[in-house]
Design a protein around this nucleic acid. Structure first.
Lengths: 207, 207, 207, 207
DNA sequence: AATGAATGAGGCTTCATTCAT
DNA sequence: CATGAATGAAGCCTCATTCAT
């Protein structure tokens, strides 16, 4: 009565997408071959075509998974006890093997793809919008932001820019760096952003 | 006595790199074929190989051009009359057809390539370091930053993150958007960042 | 229940190698294109690469087949009732469509390749050594050679030199010559060699 | 009054052919590129086409040079004081840097080419005929062969076969072997051939 | 006479995709 | 459902040859 027989088709799709994610992160969308993916998944090439119309469809499905992963991330962020902790969740997801869909290399590739592929662009745009709305809401509800002279939306804009920028920064790290180390570095910037946005000392220093 | 015969070899390289930039921005490094590039440059495929050992070498040369373009950008930023204006130069270079080497799509592709290609990674890392040092210096010399509670380096970190993040955001814009419009949007964020970092009102609001 | 399904993979390799042999003999290793081979084999180009890593590997496999063909030849020679008949087997193998791996043009190309390609050189050297040992043994066991003033090894040296030389001679024959005719000419030389080495009349004439 | 200005055109041809010989011996006819040859000759590619219609013509000219080299060789052999010494000259020409046109690798390539290229085949056939006639004559005039039970032509056939066979054998030698060493090995076989053909002891042993 | 930039056909190889089993 | 052999278009690169200078 193992639960991997409940929805075999869906499972297969997952299995393939997991393998594809490994390959895409390792080699990039267009450098990873269907054979790479089938080998990583331990199945035959032909089987992939039973579950996905073509390679493009795998990429799209991947982007879809990214979308739902971002949703989860947002949910986790929402449940954090404070806004700072929410931000820390958002900013370090790509240093966490639980969220392989947020790997820096993958996300950057996703954007590169979005730049040429209208379908992916729409999808990513949609993801960003949802995420942005979520974070705006998060901020709006946080006591710290109440009296800030920037609107919640403006703050969310900034926060997302920094988050994306850190993804790109992460790519330049030596690949042998551990997740924990990379996480530490990302947290430093998070805290700086925090202080810049909310720290009252900035006021004092100008007094 | 036309001036297109002064340095034929160097000119050819430039011509090829210009064409390559167009193709890379349009289709991505690995999706652009050598034939695409030769056609865009109006020459034969074989000729490219007189000037570049292989496609990889074209990509590297491209990354090199990006490096010097960033140097120029930094110089221009340095000459701006105020720190805010420096930042505006830095943040809008990719909305300007004078700087095709800073096109958002190209830069994102460059990072995607850096994620797998150690040679490109080192180069991009080097570019970032130089640029970061330049901006840190810029900040250190600006009166506004003197009494800031974040160090110039920390501020530069933030500024770069935002700058990179905005590149990624730029990619999601509809492609038909004009440079001016895109520029306007980028400037909004720049100003928000500025206010967050330096605006004294933030202090007041906490009073 | 046709017997062409027994060992599909091995059969494919054979099929490809057979086609390659035809092409190599007709045009030479480096003049024969992969397309030529695929066309001769009646398959697609890509399929060759499922069975051989690259063209070099096809050449090597070809050299390997030559090796085993030479082994067979030696075996046949060993089973001949007399040394003379053994030599006739050895000297006329290249005039026989049963042994396409000993075609003169192919063997000469193999040596030409051996001159530049260390891998092939080692392989051919190995083949020669084995063959030489076999022939030396053949001679040592023959009654005619017992009292010869040259050692079996020295005789084998000579015999091989003549055999190789006849391959080269064979190349200069008009291509329209039939196998039987070419065979006849080769046998003449074989018999001359025989008489020179073993004929007692040579003694008489000096008496 | 330097003599390299008497026939500039002829000199250029020689210079090119010398370079071509180096390249052909090193890489083979079809693996050597026109650029290789021009670089070896220290001239431009285009210049080769002023002296030769195309690559094929260079190969043919090369074969022609081989022909005259063989003529010279024959002349030298003819002037040797004894038949044995004539044979030694003939059998070791390819171990001598004075005769680069008889390099083993080159000659084998020439035969490989002759197998597909009718023009080259005719030429090589012609060379062999002349050489064969020369050697037949040499033998006919030598006292040793007078009373031999094989005709001079038959002996020449054998001698040529051995000579060619030794060329092929030479190819398998390790490339680092010096000319002197290779020469020594070739002479051993020459002497064995000699003893087999002419040594009276062969008679005695059968007595 | 000499150069070498330029061309483009053609070679090797890969890979998305199909289909018989 | 699953396999993997098979296809062939397309990509990278080389090289014989030409031609403006």
């Amino acid at each position: 009565m193992s639960d991997n027989r409940i929805e075999p088709a869906a499972d297969r799709r997952e299995q393939i997408l997991n393998a594809a994610m490994v390959c895409f992160a390792k080699r990039g969308f267009h450098q990873a071959s269907m054979h790479d993916i089938s080998a990583e998944a331990g199945i035959s090439v032909g089987l992939i075509y039973r579950y996905f119309e073509n390679k493009e469809a795998v990429i799209s499905a991947m982007a879809d998974r990214h979308k739902s992963e971002i949703h989860n991330l947002l949910e986790r962020a929402r449940q954090a006890p404070s806004l700072l902790e929410s931000l820390e969740v958002l900013f370090t997801a790509h240093c966490c093997e639980n969220s392989p869909q947020v790997t820096s290399a993958f996300v950057v590739d996703l954007f590169a793809e979005a730049a040429r592929n209208p379908g992916v662009r729409l999808l990513v745009r949609d993801v960003r919008k949802t995420a942005m709305d979520g974070v705006t809401d998060l901020i709006a509800r946080s006591p710290e932001a109440k009296s800030h002279h920037l609107t919640p939306r403006e703050l969310a804009d900034l926060i997302f820019a920094v988050s994306d920028g850190m993804l790109m920064r992460d790519i330049l790290q030596p690949p042998e760096l551990s997740n924990t180390e990379r996480r530490t570095r990302q947290l430093e910037v998070t805290r700086q952003l925090w202080r810049v946005i909310f720290d009252t000392e900035s006021a004092v220093s100008y007094a």
